[in-house]
Design a binder for these strands. Structure first.
Length: 294
DNA sequence: TAAACGTGGCC
DNA sequence: TGGCCAAGTTT
């Protein structure tokens, strides 16, 4: 028998209160700006790699206005090797928009958050909930997986579904604002440390007694096959990364010859560099290329 | 809608 | 060791 929605919340919140990891963004008094920065950094990136960059970032730019006052190049440099450097550009753009449109205050309204560059359905609600304590469903890869298993009895969540995922999480949310916030964080935490994609630790799971997947005998996933990641070695992505690392390493512009020496396949190099320029991660300056200055 | 987008951790 | 996965968003 699948769990009633009301069954989950007390198990999740009770477990979270004693098992939550001690993470920077959970410290008392952590600023909304810090939450926003952390959520940008956490997109597709592991917690352990984010923490050191986050601390540096907030030490250097304690408010959105501080970041907005710098050229985008500095944001991209400070991003370092976190990956997906367009996120650094987006975060800089969002900081500028917050400074200009919101008096430098990170908004709590989901629609205003969604209007900021680089903020989508997940990040907007994560900020509203974790920074401001508002009541919204927060849906990420962790909560989708925990719901698929514990509620629907399926091993994997299947592809994201904008129409279904938010209502599915909303149906589980406690009425109380503060309980809802803890529930959001708790369900994510269960997915991150217990109900993991591979080798879930079901014996330690607070939902084990109500889990529909467990009750059904852990049936194998039989839904749509997910598109698999392409090989990174030799990809355009790798070339882009190599070029960006070189651009980050210096404050002067680099000549076409200097950059071209980084990769043997000239045609692929051209494609990668053109892509970076199109994405505004690199700009043409006095006969060479550099990170973007406003 | 699906593909593109970095880098590293983990088994 | 190679493939899957990671607090997603954009086009």
């Amino acid at each position: 028998m699948p769990p009633e929605p009301s069954d989950l919340a007390p198990l999740v919140t009770g477990w979270f209160r004693t098992n939550a990891r001690d993470l920077p963004w959970r410290r008392p008094g952590f600023p909304a700006w810090g939450t926003l920065v952390s959520e940008f950094m956490l997109q597709q990136t592991q917690v352990s790699r984010v923490i050191p960059r986050l601390e540096e970032w907030l030490g250097r730019w304690p408010t959105p206005a501080d970041l907005a006052a710098e050229p985008p190049a500095e944001a991209v440099r400070a991003w370092g090797r976190l990956g997906y450097p367009r996120r650094a550009l987006w975060l800089h753009a969002a900081a500028t928009q917050i400074a200009e449109r919101h008096d430098g205050i990170v908004p709590s309204d989901v629609d205003q958050l969604l209007a900021l560059t680089g903020i989508g359905a997940y990040t907007a609600r994560a900020v509203a909930v974790f920074a401001y304590g508002d009541r919204h469903p927060v849906v990420d890869t962790n909560t989708r997986r925990v719901i698929a298993r514990s509620v629907r009895g399926q091993g994997e969540p299947g592809p994201p579904n904008a129409k279904a995922d938010l209502p599915a999480m909303a149906a589980l949310l406690p009425e109380s604002r503060s309980e809802a916030a803890v529930f959001n964080a708790g369900l994510m935490e269960i997915g991150a440390v217990v109900c993991t994609a591979r080798a879930p630790r079901c014996e330690e799971c607070p939902l084990r007694e109500v889990c529909a997947w467990r009750a059904a005998g852990y049936p194998a996933y039989d839904g749509p096959v997910k598109t698999k990641q392409k090989q990174f070695a030799g990809s355009d992505r790798q070339v882009r990364g190599i070029i960006m690392a070189e651009l980050r390493s210096t404050h002067r512009s680099l000549t076409d010859e200097e950059l071209r020496a980084l990769w043997p396949d000239g045609e692929q190099f051209d494609r990668a560099l053109a892509g970076l320029v199109a994405d505004r991660l690199a700009v043409r300056v006095d006969g060479g290329y550099a990170l973007p200055h406003d």
